[in-house]
Amino acid sequence: MIGETLRLKVAAVADIAPGLRHVRLVAADGGKLPPAAAGAHVQLVLAGATRTHRNAYSLVSRPGARDAWEIIVRRVPTSRGGSAYVHESLQAGDVLEAGWPGNLFAPVRTARRQLMIAGGIGITPFLSYLAEFAFSGVEHALHVCCRESERHAFDPWLADRPHVAWHWDADGHRLDIPALLAAQPMGTHLYVCGPAAMNDEVLAAAAAAGWPDTHVHCEHFGSALSGGEAFRAFLARSGIEVDVAEDESLLDAIERVGVKAPCLCRGGACGVCVTPLLEGEAEHRDHVLSAEERAAGRLIMPCVSRARAGRLVLDL
């Protein structure tokens, strides 16, 4: 089970509610997918009209499923383009490039009770949580805040899931977050996934109620995995100008133009790729350089770090 990228074929697309599209993906070569589990996401490469989007979507398929993965995509009016592409252009039969599943929102299995709060499409990671908790038998509850009209859109994933409560914006139906948090027994872990304002409200309520940080978990997509603004680097010794795209690392770009740079972990930990920075300001994302070294601004780890603004000149 070793690999980095996958080719996925769209097996089916279906609208399950206005603005909610369900996509079923299989391995393009007809083989098996790697298993993935509760909280996992997959990053899809979506070739839009003007640029390529790399969007991460929670897998809502059965935990461990290897025949097909499923995602549900909401059409976002302010979409960077990825969700618009899924809703307007994606068709059965299309082949997409994807990364192997990642998981930045796995449930904590030492929890005595699992409490989930979802806002709208934020329910998606919890669909796989529910499947796992039903299998393991751990005590759990999911509270979903959504539009009243959407409360049945997820029914196909919620058969035999009794511990789900629905809330919407009408008198008698709103979720009283402080009251819910106050009523939880010791040993409960809280997970929240929804719009930023709702996440903030739940996190603030948990802090106010004295919940320890270790027991409160919030889903943030795309947190510092890779990429950022595109920028330009000049390799002084090689005399080569490199354009670093928003979805590639500086190291990838250096290698792409045929310059050999030493490297090992490619994750900002080992320090092997440290490179003298002759000009420009770096956005440091590594775990190696000290605060003093960062302040001095003479070194960069090209495997993870990028330009803060403008052009970088490297001694390579």
Binding site: M1, I2, G3, E4, P34, A36, W100, P101, G102, N103, C265, G267, G268, A269, C270, H287
Partner: peptide
């Protein structure tokens, strides 16, 4: 580094 270790 290990906390970011990737599947596959």
């Amino acid at each position: 580094y290990l906390l970011m270790l990737r599947l596959g």
